[in-house]
Simulated scan of single mutants.
Amino acid sequence: MTRARRALIDLSSTSYYHLIARCVRRAFLCGDDKYTGKNFDHRRRWLVERIKLLSSVFAIEIAAYAIMSNHYHLVVKVNRQQALKWSNNEVICRWYKLYRGTPIIDRYLRGEELIEEEQLLVTELIEKWRARLFDISWYMKNLNEFIAKRANKEDGCTGKYWEGRYKSQALLDDAALLSCMAYVDLNPIRANMANKLEDSDFTSIQERIKQLQSNNVYVKSEITHQVKQPKSLKPFGIRDHARTLPFSLLDYLKLVEWTGHHIHTEKNRHILKGTPNILKLLKIGGATWLEVIKNYSNHYGHFVGSKTVLRAHAAKNDVSWYKGVG
């Protein structure tokens, strides 16, 4: 049964969400279309550029992304408190980067004298825009509509481009965030589109690795938290840093590399070796972790977390059961 979006996105429970949108037509979103012989890889760049632009405008940060042949994945963090601290002028400036303004706001910006009713209208508009600038639905609406119009124009056609509304998953704890990010970053590996993380085009992990390489830092070597990270992505840090992802960048890269290696060598019954530090810290067994990543899309529904967290969240929302508990 379809759930109302307000029941799926609850910022009081978590600020992290996994978002997925899928192309509705036979023609690929990106990649090679075997029916027409056309290649649409340039559309992947459209998506990456657009999500980065939107995240520079919205109070929504990108933690991970993967642009696949006919769908894409995003892991984002909503910074509601940041948006609430913006000045009125900053809200207007951000909104005007994407949408046309209104005469009353233009008059306000010019410093013209406004009567009381006009001042109230200005305040209402600014607060409405502020709320939309940390709203995932507005973020996804702006992203998907832009890509649909551009792709339809290129294809010389009209009609729906996306398969219904986007899918969202609330990531309710650190383990959920970690497993979702790894699942997203490993999508090209699992789909046999790439053999190495460095070759996983149009993914956040490739972007992070390239940044390290540009810093002359070898991925497997010891690095500090001061290593320069991509500006357009939410940085890794440590658990006590509120503005960063609660993991070490090096530990995360090692985890994803280890996971991808074991998924690739599963048919050879490769013995699990050297459980990554992050899994030890979160008290997750290596075999359990690999099972979660391999079956992530089937194991969870709209909410991801430990069984205890899922049960508590279900009770909070007066729901008897969430997929992933049983």
Rank of each mutant, 00 (worst) to 15 (best):
W162A: 06
E145P: 10
N152D: 08
Y161M: 14
K141G: 05
Y166A: 08
D173R: 07
Y166T: 04
E163P: 01
L143S: 05
W138M: 12
K149I: 04
N152A: 14
G156M: 09
L171E: 03
A151M: 14
Y161L: 15
A151L: 14
K167H: 05
A170L: 04
K141V: 03
M140W: 02
N152M: 14
S137Q: 09
C157A: 14
I147H: 04
Q169V: 00
Q169F: 00
C157K: 15
A170E: 00
K141M: 10
E163I: 05
N142L: 13
W138N: 11
Y139V: 01
Q169D: 01
S137C: 13
L172Y: 01
Y161W: 14
S137R: 03
W138K: 10
S137A: 15
L172N: 01
E154W: 12
G164T: 05
K141L: 11
E163W: 13
Y161I: 09
L171C: 06
D155Y: 13
L172P: 00
N144W: 01
G164C: 09
K160H: 10
N152V: 07
G156H: 11
K149W: 07
K141A: 10
Y166M: 09
K149S: 08
S168M: 08
K149Y: 09
W138I: 05
D155V: 04
E154A: 15
K149Q: 06
K149G: 04
L172Q: 02
L172C: 06
R165A: 07
K149M: 07
A151I: 13
G159S: 11
S137W: 07
I147M: 08
S137M: 09
K141R: 12
A151Y: 06
A151H: 10
K160D: 02
C157V: 11
G164M: 11
F146A: 15
D173I: 11
F146W: 13
W138S: 14
R165T: 00
A170G: 10
A170Y: 00
E154G: 10
Y139H: 06
D173V: 09
A148Q: 12
D173Q: 12
N144H: 07
A148M: 09
C157W: 06
